[in-house]
Write a protein that binds this DNA or RNA. Structure first.
Lengths: 147, 147
DNA sequence: AAAGATTGATCAGTCAATCTTG
DNA sequence: CAAGATTGACTGATCAATCTTT
């Protein structure tokens, strides 16, 4: 079948629209609170799980970013003092990126704002169980796009 | 309630991830076919519904773009010969944007590529009826974000 | 003053080329 | 040569200021 159903086309259009609307609302709230953009949160979160630091290529896979974008994201976050580059003994080509204390602190300040936005924009509009349904359906799309 | 459920948080994370993955796949395919980015398609589609042209502020609302971004999008599309700016008798501050023949033709060439991508990325991974469920749930988020 | 639209400056993302080490 | 990472040049998005007309 090469013809998508109307339902599939509507779902696709709404996926784009919902993402834009919700993401822009979240970014607006973070900015209003004097906090960094959401992309930084994701990076800080991943790095927080690896006290010894992560290789850029590992961040690349987690964040769905390209190599040069990771490189520049790390540049900006390092400049802001939130992460640091540490030499890597096992592979001289690369290094490890690790959270600084300021990075951990910034992530901690971002979460309440982020959490409140998710509660209002995602949890509140849905009936109990619908969030799980939505997560399941989106999970199917993600799996299929990867395979 | 200010604490989102885990389901809501998962749904949010997957909304971001699914949108990124699917959109980047679609953009890749359009580019591989020598076609313009998806944002142009949306604009061409809206303009195709209004033979007499649309005011930029109307496009702004439809496409969820900001005024200055619409202004520059029109610049690029006009430069590519796909739309034209027409004087507007009823309001001297603005103008109307209208499709050219080349714009209509480009939109027609984009649709088969776009349609095939939606079929593969959205329709194929879901069971019958699931696309409708997904569309409904996303619609709820969109409504709530607007209200 | 408010609405419609544009512009210059700056910041982030992308492309292609490059550099270093495995 | 392949993998990890960076850089310069360009394109696109954003911020703040501006201009014109209502």
């Amino acid at each position: 079948m090469t013809e998508p159903s109307d339902d599939a086309t509507t779902a696709w259009a709404r996926l784009l629209k919902a993402e834009r609307l919700l993401l822009s609302a979240v970014e607006r709230e973070l900015k209003a609170a004097g906090l960094p953009p959401l992309g930084w949160y994701d990076a800080l979160l991943e790095l927080g799980r690896a006290p010894e630091g992560l290789r850029p290529y590992a961040l690349e896979a987690e964040l769905l970013l390209e190599q040069h974008n990771v490189s520049r994201l790390i540049d900006r976050m390092e400049k802001a003092g939130l992460v640091e580059r540490r030499p890597c003994v096992e592979d001289g080509r690369g290094y490890r990126v690790a959270l600084t204390a300021a990075g951990a602190e910034t992530r901690a300040r971002m979460w309440p704002v982020y959490r409140a936005a998710i509660a209002r924009l995602v949890a509140a509009p849905l009936e109990p169980g619908e969030a799980a349904s939505l997560a399941r359906l989106l999970g199917r799309l993600i799996e299929a796009a990867r395979g």
